[in-house]
Design a protein around this nucleic acid. Sequence first.
DNA 1: ATCCTCCCCTAC
DNA 2: TAAGGTAGGGGAGGAT
Length: 979
Amino acid sequence: MAGRGNSHRGDNGWSEWGGYMAAKKRKLEEQFDKDSSNNAKQLERKSNIFQGISIFVDGHTEPPADELKKLMMEHGGVYHAYYSKDKITYFISNNLPYAKIRKLKPNDKVVNSKWITDCIKENKLLSTHNYEMYKDVTRSRGQTELNFKRAEPMKPITSDFNVPNSDDEDDHSSPSETEEAPTEDDDHLSVLDAKHPKFLETFLKRSRLHYLSSTAVAKKVYVQELRQKPEHRQLIEKRREELKNTIQRTERDYLFKIHDEKKEKIYMHIDMDCFFVSVATRHQPELRDQPIVITHSKGRKAATTNEHQFYSRSELASCNYAARQYGIKNGMYLGRAQELCRNHQAKLLCLPYDYEGFHEVSDRFYETILSYTLEVEAVSCDELYVDLTDLLIYLKPLHPLTFVSLLREEIQINTKCPCSAGMGSNMLLARLATRHAKPNGQYYVEKGYEQEFIAKQKLIDLPGIGSSILDKLQQTFPQTTVDTCKQIQNLCSLEQLKNILGKKQGQTMYDMTHGIDTRILTKDYLPKSISIDINYGIRFQTFDELTVFIKQLVLELHKRLKQARQKGKQLSVKIRVRAPDAPIEPEKFMGCGRTDDSSRLVNLHSYTDDPINIELETIKLLKQMNFIVADLRGIGISMTQFQSALKNTSGKDMNGHRTLFDCNQFRLPKPSSTTVGNQTDTGEPSESFVTRKRPMQQEPTTTAVPQKVSRLDCYTPGQIDPHVMNELPEPIRQEVEQYLKNPSSVSRQNSESDRIEVIEKSFTQVMDHLDEAVLNELPPEMRREITMAQKLRKMESKYPPIGGKRLVPISVPLNPVAQEKSNAFNVLMNSPQKQPTTTTTTKKTSIPVKRWRTETILNEEPITTTTSNVRTEPKPQSFHHQPSIAGFTLLSDVKLMLREWIESSDEPNQIDFDLFQNYLIDLLNSYNAEMVHQLVSYGLLQLKPLTSKIQWMKHFQNLIEAVQTRFRQMYGGVTMDLS
DNA sequence: ATCCTCCCCTAC
DNA sequence: TAAGGTAGGGGAGGAT
């Protein structure tokens, strides 16, 4: 983190020092020597166990540094007040940030202070083996010894480390130290603002907010990936088994009967208590009684006189509960926090960020929970929801509170940090319960107590409700102070709330204040936007300077898009410009102060992640917005409307090339106003990606044992959990299995007409016979799938589906007539907002609706068709449809197009390849392998004689591989002959 | 009436 | 000094 300190000042306590500090250190050590010789006479020399051992103590230890110093002296060791590379043999610390570790020399050992006390207890020098905190200190220390620019390269470095709490250390710096990497020395500048080439990197590395947002995404991805791993499911089974065998049940447990019927859901919300502080003190928990905050500033000058006091505008990333007691809050300026502490004669302890530690604790937190269940929705690095329903059924009659206390205990052991958990019958109640539980506690809103509980909740504590929304409410009722749910219950009707807050927010507010929340866990994560925003340190004089920075931003954005394998079709740029009446420099150093914000977006010609293209468009947008460069205080670039990039995408974006589907001749008319509300923000569900990754002809619903790898492997979030499936009552299961049977697997056993019949029949059975009563008997997960399927079906009656790919394969054969008209390529060819509904519907089947009221959604869905008004059944004969590409279905047409495409450019466009590949796979899916063979051979024929088509050949190889894979899947391992 | 764009709000 | 990022939901109001 701060390892490559850019500052010349020793403000964080870990920057380099100069001659001044060297001199001071010498002086202190002389003093210590004197102390030793003088005081040692007073101090009884008890042993020589530390003969030849010298230590440096970092930070807070138990016992404290003073005591350790005394102990060293009593037992023949040496204590150094300052770190010195050539002298220290042991580095005593209970909590060492990674930044400091990086500065240790190769043989340094970081040892827990307990080693010293234990040695004394045993009266011998113990091996440090069990006390070492970081074994691999030398790893990744990078180039710190390289290329010294000034002064004595080989001279032992004096003061890499200093005593963090010493008082007068940041007054001087000196050019004599040389530890840092050359680049920082080169430009003699601190990385102050965005003009500095390293600004972005430095800033992001240190930004807590960046940490929070990036780790939140990372955790969502992590959980999702874990869900795909069969071996993890085995681990869970093992862990559950262990738990079941070891727990001793209490009387309370046996009284817990709710889960005897499966109807009642139990959610848990769990998060770490004051995460950053807990992590920073995890090896010195005894510190936690005093007020502690995490800041970049050390805030050392605060305790001096009131006059001329420096007022730090460093924001608190986190404060512990001892600090909150004085009114200190997260996000507050350090100066203010110090003020509050001073008012209470309390001393505020400022600790630095320990990003490495955050990662470590966060990982362990997640690992612990995930070892019991995958019914998890990740919220952030230290917070998540769990659907405990199934787990508790398994552990029956274990009481939820018993389970959660066991879990929390395990988390405490694994992370050395406390956490709190709330439980309730919905996610809202669970979340509010957590608030009630904090710190370090748990709370269960039991059945029957929901109303009582919700009524007393503060409105501001409701998730999604902030001061702004609260103000709106308050303004409507000037006569009373509105602050609890109860008050809203009494004061406002649903209509009234909708009037005040708008339709959706009004409904949400109404539901929440009544304790209603029908959301279910969002388990499949698909990003809707990827962006980068910097609103700190933005100071430019010229547009050129800005352009240089834009380049960096765009590269970073590109990196993120690549990493997420996303390409977007809509780019938007946001700027913050100093408000006319705001001072040029705000009170916060390099802050943005009060700004006027504005944004512009552009719909791109094609899906892209290409930095050059993005940069170009960004600059264009910026130029559209009139602003004075010198007044720019913040900038953000955001990509939306994704076509999820394909897994095997290697290609760059080929913008500017004439591409297959840019040609008007190939363009299908845009589906006109068939778009449905909110379609646009749901983006592209990337059918081809999903399909290829988890081919749907695999059988998610067979009754094979859950452990069977092939089956677990192909379980996807959009499909029904096999475990759930096995728990269904037999008749229902059969129905659902049939209903879910996908066309290719069915058709392997049946003739085509049989197949249609089977599918239609099973569909009808499921849809018509699973009435609401039955539906309610189903596990919620299943219920959701069915509900979605019903919705999907309704929508399809109005809007024809595109293509043959579905996460839930039920819709595949349903509307062949419509399929004939269009195909999956539309998805990629037309702007997303113009896509027919099915695209979105597909997605909705795979992503749980995350809303407060499912009913609302259903009602608001633009499809008004009722269940009885099912769409007309397709004519069987029309099932023999041909997939089409760019509107063509005839082999000769497609061949012609293929040739034109190949001739159009020496560098193919990946998107086109993706489209083409999808088409071929569609052909395979409709049992037209012959045509696939013809087309691939034809393509190869076109390419082979031309050396200029090397890129094409590469792409073609990939394509052939994908096609072969699909072919093998369909025809039991046989490979298509393409020689 | 239904969209799209440009915001604003909230959360971690 | 200080590191005020980002994703997502949704409303207002103009365009269609």
